[in-house]
Amino acid sequence: MRKALVCDDEPIIRMSLKSKLAELGFDEIVECGDGEEAVRLALDKLPDIAILDVSMPKKDGVTAARDIRRKLKIPIILLTACYDPDTVKRAKESGIGGILTKPFREQDLWPAIEVACAHADEVETLKEQVEDLKETLESRKVIEKAKGILMQKQGLSEPEAFRRMQKLAMDKRKSMRQIAEAILLTE
């Protein structure tokens, strides 16, 4: 089941978007007319994508998008009649996946959705890879430090210290990092 959030203060735009999204296979389309409501609905209904107008009452679309992206990693497309450099800059900084200018052409919606979804997936994959690399680097630092302690305290060469830690990890069915952390605790 595919779900979309449409937020624009102009009911005719919302109606047009809802119609086109239904044609594109979205089963549920949630709509509202202001940015605060968009954030609340996004967190409540958990849509697969959000399409937000930039100029809305209570909270503008870029701010609403930023608030939504902090909690949900969904693609967001902005609708705007005014695409000034400041709006584009704020949109980029907020993680917006695409911008459609008003009046939008219905045939532009599907490609914008596809690109925004691909962009959001790519960003999330990259974030996961960065986290994995950070974890690997942190583990490597801990292992190197523990290896240094074994070399110093037990007079082992670097390969010997590494093999000893490796053997302990296999014998105790622990990760190298867990063994290294245990060695550092005895320090």
Rank of each mutant, 00 (worst) to 15 (best):
D8A: 05
S16Y: 03
E28Y: 04
I29S: 06
E187F: 01
P111R: 04
K134F: 07
P111E: 04
P159R: 12
D9P: 03
E135Y: 05
L137I: 06
D48S: 11
K141T: 10
D67E: 15
I99T: 01
M56G: 02
V130H: 05
E23M: 12
R40F: 13
S19T: 13
G155A: 08
V115C: 07
D48G: 11
K167I: 15
K59C: 04
L46H: 15
R140L: 13
D67L: 13
F162I: 03
E138R: 14
E135N: 09
L168E: 14
L133W: 13
K141S: 13
I74G: 00
E135D: 09
L5A: 09
P103V: 03
R140Y: 11
C7G: 13
Q152E: 14
D8Y: 08
S19Q: 10
E160R: 14
K153I: 01
K145G: 01
D48C: 08
M170S: 14
C32V: 02
R14F: 01
D86Q: 13
D121Q: 14
D27F: 02
L78Q: 08
E158C: 10
I96A: 08
E131Y: 01
S16F: 08
A42D: 05
A42T: 07
D8H: 07
R90V: 04
L24K: 03
D108Q: 12
R177D: 07
M56K: 02
V6P: 10
C82W: 02
A22D: 07
L150N: 00
A64I: 06
L43C: 08
L52S: 03
S157W: 00
V115Q: 14
I12N: 06
I183S: 06
A50R: 04
R105V: 09
A42F: 08
K167E: 15
M165D: 11
L52C: 05
M170E: 15
D67A: 14
G35T: 10
D171V: 06
R173D: 12
V115H: 14
E138S: 15
A4S: 12
R164H: 10
E138L: 12
C7Y: 05
I77L: 05
V6E: 05
M170T: 12
S19L: 11
L17S: 10
